[in-house]
Computed example of a mutant assay.
Amino acid sequence: MKLSAPRIAPLSDAELSREQAEALEPYFWGNTSNLMRTLAHNPEALSRFTPWVSYFCSRLMHLPPRAKEIVILRTGFLCKSGYEWAHHVKSGMRTGLTESEIFGIKQGAQAGWSPAEAVLIQAADELLRDCFIDDATWAALRRHYSEDQCMDVVYTAAFYAQLSMVLNTFGVQLDEGLKLDPDLKRD
């Protein structure tokens, strides 16, 4: 987490304009997160954000849920996004990741992963470092994943890197009940 307080505060129900409330409507499955209530400041952007984010939450995605969470967690960790990390630790555990494996995501591809999972971490590392997956890593991805799944690896890392930039820069604070990982504390 880069900031200890939001630069752009999440909107309460009482503060929402009609347009903001309409843009938030797809997210009202329980308590709406600090992220969505922050993004609601710009309802036009939020309404266009919704279809893309829904792809990552849908069954349309080709990448298996566990693989997707590995890519998201590695991306969130590399981007130092405490918010993203805290949310996706819970999601990752629902896909079968163990606490030990979640710790291993922070350590990188050499932390005892299967070849199919190590290459996911390697791909995320390269995308965040170089904005590109090199030929050797792409070939390794293709040994384990279909072309559509490989595309989803890139889409996932790119989307969650962008989201991490938003979270970090706007200072979106953790939602109630989430804990900041000690490795992602403010500098």
Score class of each variant (00 low, 15 high):
13 D>N: 08
120 L>C: 08
78 L>M: 14
79 C>I: 03
15 E>V: 02
16 L>M: 09
72 I>T: 14
127 L>R: 09
87 H>Q: 12
122 Q>I: 10
1 M>Q: 07
141 L>R: 05
18 R>K: 15
157 A>H: 00
111 A>Y: 03
88 H>Y: 06
86 A>N: 11
179 K>S: 13
135 D>G: 14
158 A>C: 10
107 Q>I: 03
67 A>C: 11
116 A>M: 11
84 E>N: 12
49 F>L: 10
31 N>M: 15
58 S>F: 08
40 A>E: 06
127 L>M: 15
17 S>K: 08
110 Q>P: 00
159 F>W: 05
28 F>H: 15
111 A>C: 11
12 S>W: 03
26 P>V: 14
78 L>I: 13
159 F>D: 00
75 T>N: 07
39 L>Q: 02
159 F>S: 03
18 R>C: 06
171 G>D: 03
62 H>A: 14
97 L>E: 04
178 L>M: 11
159 F>Y: 07
97 L>T: 02
173 Q>V: 02
49 F>C: 00
11 L>K: 10
48 R>Y: 06
177 G>P: 10
108 G>F: 08
33 S>M: 08
131 C>K: 14
180 L>C: 08
186 R>S: 11
106 K>V: 13
110 Q>K: 08
136 A>N: 15
89 V>Q: 03
9 A>D: 09
126 E>A: 14
31 N>S: 15
52 W>T: 04
35 L>K: 03
13 D>S: 09
154 V>A: 04
177 G>R: 02
90 K>M: 03
143 R>V: 04
162 Q>T: 00
11 L>P: 07
66 R>P: 09
155 Y>N: 00
125 D>K: 04
119 V>S: 09
127 L>A: 08
140 A>R: 13
153 V>A: 01
123 A>H: 12
92 G>H: 09
170 F>C: 00
106 K>A: 15
143 R>K: 11
43 P>E: 03
104 G>V: 02
10 P>N: 07
71 V>S: 05
181 D>S: 07
122 Q>L: 12
77 F>G: 07
120 L>V: 06
